[in-house]
Amino acid sequence: MYSNIHMPKGFKCAGVSAGIKLGGAKDMALILSDFPATAAGVFTQNQVCAAPVKVCRAHLEHGVARAIVMNSGIANACTGSEGMVAVRDMAAETAKIIGCEPQEIFVCSTGRIGPQLPLDKIVPGIGTLFESALIEHVQETAEAMMTTDTRPKVSVAQLQIEGRAVKIVGFAKGAGMIEPNMATMLSYITTDAAVERHAFQNALKKAVDASFNRISIDGDQSTNDTVLALANGASGVKTLDESSDDWDAFSRALEKVCFELAMMIVHDGEGADKFVTVNVAGAVSDADADQAARSVANSMLNKTAWAGTTPNWGRIMDAVGYSLARVEEEKVGVFYDDAQVVAGGVRTDIAVEELIKVVSQTDFAINIDLHLGDGAATVYTCNCTEEYVRINY
């Protein structure tokens, strides 16, 4: 799928099987920069967070990175002091091979919460990753990141800065435990642009807010959410910051990559077969619109109705009403795509067959107008089928 995609200049990557997962599936990945790279990161807001998240937050203070090493299959969350030792050992082993400081290594994990990492498999796996790291091993890297994902997720953007080609390549994994403020998802963004550290952090946060923080699959926030971005300057362009002429173009490209990856995550939602966009307009503020949109998107009653192609608009009204948004029932309008089912808080005379036609599509929108102000927000979500239960019981 991604065999023709190469990493940006100065980056290599790899994905291998270290024996963490049964059956020989790839379960370790490496992203390596030939040069010290400026680092930016955004992490889970869950008060219970995995050992690698704690270490990555600390390493981000250093601001420079040489590599990201990760495992899938075991989350290394709720593992106490032993889990922290495992993360530091992974960073130290990777740093020893590169010849850099351990704080220049970011370590990530994803998978089941609770078990300890098998360092007897992971340490040799790190060596195997370095032996196989190449600029073209994008497919293998994306595959190694997967847990319940059904397919790897990669996005690419290219642009010209100062007459030079600049490239951004992003990876992501995630299919369940996905709720705004990120989820059991990992994403790594690499670019051969040179970017000033604080500007890079601000740009990444803005891109995440418009992408990974706009999605929900099941309303569950994870312990391991991590988005990391590395910029190594190998393209030869001058260092970009918010005053640079090309800053807007770079920021848009970064946002594009993050948004495309976020949409891939929703389309690959565990057991899902419908992609649903929830738009709320007319709120007293953007924050209120966000509350209403999340409430509708996270409602299991709505998700199961969409799975059953049932246009149960009452569940939408209910979810809007119990959200923290200000709502005046007699002003609310609800649309399935362009088909209006609620006007002034009550049902219209639209034929139910027209609504069923909309919710039978694999991609549709729920559009809600609160008629109270100019606030607006969008959340991207999916339905919930019996298969979601089978995956997660």
Rank of each mutant, 00 (worst) to 15 (best):
D209M: 08
A194G: 05
V107E: 01
G10F: 07
A283M: 11
G125H: 05
A144L: 12
T310G: 06
A249E: 04
N46H: 04
A343T: 07
A203E: 05
R66Y: 07
K206P: 00
T385A: 11
I105F: 09
M146R: 11
F259H: 14
G321N: 06
H198V: 11
L240S: 11
V123C: 09
D120L: 08
M70F: 10
G99E: 00
H62K: 08
N383H: 11
T44N: 10
A77T: 10
D288P: 01
A210R: 13
Q221N: 13
V64W: 05
A67P: 00
V352Y: 06
A165L: 14
V358P: 00
R214C: 14
L230K: 02
P36M: 14
I20N: 06
R88E: 06
E354N: 15
N383W: 01
M28S: 01
T128H: 07
G333A: 14
L159P: 05
L301K: 12
T184K: 15
E143G: 08
V280Q: 08
T226L: 02
A262R: 08
T141P: 06
G219D: 01
P36V: 10
A297N: 02
Q291R: 13
A40D: 03
G176A: 15
M28Q: 03
H62N: 12
T381Q: 04
E354H: 14
A91F: 00
L372C: 10
L204M: 07
R315W: 01
S244L: 02
Q158F: 11
S132Q: 15
K331L: 14
R315I: 00
K206L: 12
A18N: 04
S109W: 06
F364K: 15
A339N: 04
T310P: 02
N4Y: 13
E270P: 01
V195Y: 02
V296S: 05
A65S: 12
K12E: 04
N392V: 07
A40W: 01
G163Q: 08
D268P: 03
C258P: 04
Q139A: 09
L324W: 07
F35N: 14
G271C: 07
V278H: 04
K238N: 09
G111S: 10
I97L: 15
G83V: 03
T184Q: 12
V195K: 02
N392P: 08
A37C: 06
L30Q: 02
V138S: 13
Y393E: 05
D225T: 04
T362F: 10
A193M: 02
E353T: 12
D89V: 14
Y188A: 03
M70T: 11
L60Y: 06
A39G: 08
K303C: 05
V359I: 11
N302Y: 04
R112D: 12
G170F: 10
E131Y: 07
N312A: 15
A376Y: 00
G63H: 03
S132D: 12
E162N: 13
E386T: 15
Q291N: 13
L134S: 14
R164S: 11
H62V: 08
N367H: 14
G174S: 08
I366W: 01
N71Y: 07
M264I: 03
P52I: 09
V69M: 03
G345Y: 02
A293P: 02
A67G: 06
V55Y: 11
R214G: 03
D248A: 15
A339Y: 12
A25V: 10
C384T: 10
K331W: 03
C100F: 04
G282L: 12
N71T: 14
A40V: 06
E328A: 13
A253Q: 09
A92D: 09
T277Q: 13
A51G: 07
